[in-house]
């Protein structure tokens, strides 16, 4: 499953090429029989971890469903307050970033060091854009209106006594998601740093790129669920 294409190999300076962290010099952990098995193991571990993340968000989705059944009015009102255009913009941003991060993996496999970095940078820009839109056009104006969660709710025009609950779920759901965006960006930033510094990833060593990308896809996936539930279904 690993390509050995060195078509795009850009010869690295010597001090990087001989660095133990350079992808060619990377060895399997002492308890693994082969490098391949280590790679498979890491990926299995990552998938398990992603399962736990999905289940974590499943809790929030359950809460959403229960209260939607209990207080349909409040839920309809709540999602009316949100502007779907910002949600849609962020969806597009995340979809683009998912695409670039997938490209980054491909580049690592092909040893295309330059585009690996470029793709990662675009992904990180998207992440920043996402957080920016979220804060600037959603959180900050909403909070200023008094559309805050739970007891902090102070929006005089509210039509349903249970709207504070809607905002609780909105902030918890999107807040935890935003936290995941930040964690994912940190991981990708780390990958970027290491490939800049050591060319740490290449055709035989891209576990970290692949796993971070998987994580990023998860972040994207969760948003794909959050977006229609919060913004579109009235």
């Amino acid at each position: 499953m690993q390509t050995t294409l060195d078509a795009y190999d850009t010869p690295a300076p010597d001090h990087i090429r001989s660095h133990p962290k350079h992808w060619r010099n990377r060895k399997a952990g002492h308890h693994w029989r082969t490098h391949d098995e280590e790679f498979d193991g890491s990926k299995l571990g990552m998938w398990l971890f992603l399962t736990t993340e999905v289940l974590l968000f499943a809790g929030i989705f359950c809460g959403y469903a229960v209260f939607r059944l209990l207080y349909p009015e409040a839920w309809a009102n709540g999602s009316h307050y949100l502007d779907w255009r910002f949600g849609a913009a962020n969806t597009v941003v995340l979809l683009i970033s998912s695409w670039t991060v997938a490209n980054a993996v491909r580049c690592a496999q092909l040893n295309n060091q330059k585009w690996l970095k470029i793709n990662l940078i675009i992904t990180l820009i998207c992440a920043a854009l996402f957080v920016f839109i979220k804060l600037k056009f959603e959180y900050i104006p909403k909070l200023a209106d008094g559309k805050a969660p739970g007891t902090f709710f102070n929006y005089p025009m509210a039509q349903d006594p249970h709207e504070p609950l809607w905002w609780s779920l909105y902030y918890v759901g999107t807040g935890i998601h935003a936290l995941h965006v930040l964690i994912g960006a940190t991981l990708l930033g780390w990958v970027l740093y290491r490939s800049w510094r050591y060319q740490a990833y290449g055709p035989t060593e891209y576990t970290m790129v692949e796993n971070s990308a998987l994580y990023w896809h998860l972040v994207d996936l969760v948003w794909i669920f959050l977006f229609p539930l919060l913004y579109l279904i009235h």
């Binding site: 736990t52 209260f67 969660p149 739970g150 007891t151 902090f152 504070p164 609950l165 609780s168 918890v172």
Partner: peptide, 28 residues
């Protein structure tokens, strides 16, 4: 993970009074 999110909500609930589990605020 499910207890993770539950306990997290409980913590938010105590610190920010978000009301998801609090019947006084319509929670369940």
């Amino acid at each position: 993970p499910v207890i993770g999110i539950t306990l997290l909500l409980l913590i938010f609930e105590r610190i920010f009074r978000i009301g998801i589990f609090d019947p006084a605020m319509g929670g369940d």
